[in-house]
Design a protein around this nucleic acid. Structure first.
Lengths: 110, 110
DNA sequence: CGGCACCGTAAGTGCTAGCTTACTGTTCGT
DNA sequence: ACGAACAGTAAGCTAGCACTTACGGTGCCG
């Protein structure tokens, strides 16, 4: 807690399967809303609402070109997820190693 | 199948705020269910249900010691998240660089 | 053995959020 | 300028899920 702002919104955003599907499409290449909706089993407004969430969390950015809006992945948001995930990763390893040490101690005591 | 049937379930698991709180606690150190419930604003059965989900997705592992069950982070599950996230990360960078290239081309055309 | 501590499961409930349809707002082409 | 294409917003409905209480099961200790 404290000064370290916990961006839980980013995890919430990735928690929805449709939004993850959108992220996968955008990982291929930047796309306008209509093109995304065609490749997904939901309506265009639904996609639009999901993109709003993804944009608010900083996972995607948009650019208006002509009458359409092209969305693309935002490296900043993705990096934020990586940072938090690395914390879990490091500590998961620490936990695992402590288990190994305990097992080793058990053997030594024999 | 079997070992690798998750993938998307892992994100769903991390989508819930309470489960993320549990993951934070387990990142500190392994804990039994009751201890986790004391530090959270939900009942013990609720924690138990969440732990079930986290275990099914491979994010945590449990060990029965006496009458209690000690849960800890599972490096394998956390690693699964990291792998998928890295895919987004690499492609997000590719998208960004393509934008930079386009901007550069625009300047050259002038 | 009997009571206790710890935990998982069952059953039921309330609320969130994702979806749809309908509407409004821009921008481009003719 | 008018219609078409593209997209965001509003309102409403529904399904899923996170939570609760109640219960059943297992290992520990006096």
């Amino acid at each position: 807690m404290g000064t370290y702002e916990w961006q839980s919104d980013v995890w919430d955003a990735m928690g929805d399967p449709t939004r993850r599907a959108i992220m996968e499409r955008l990982a291929e290449h930047p796309s306008p809303v209509g093109e995304l909706a065609e490749q997904l089993p939901v309506s265009r407004p639904a996609v639009s609402q999901h993109l709003k969430v993804l944009k608010e969390t900083g996972l995607v950015s948009d650019e208006t070109v002509g009458t359409r809006r092209v969305y693309r992945l935002n490296p900043v948001g993705v990096q934020a997820l990586r940072d938090q995930l690395d914390m879990f990763w490091n500590r998961a390893l620490a936990n695992y190693e402590s288990v190994v040490e305990e097992k080793a101690e058990e053997k030594e005591e024999k």
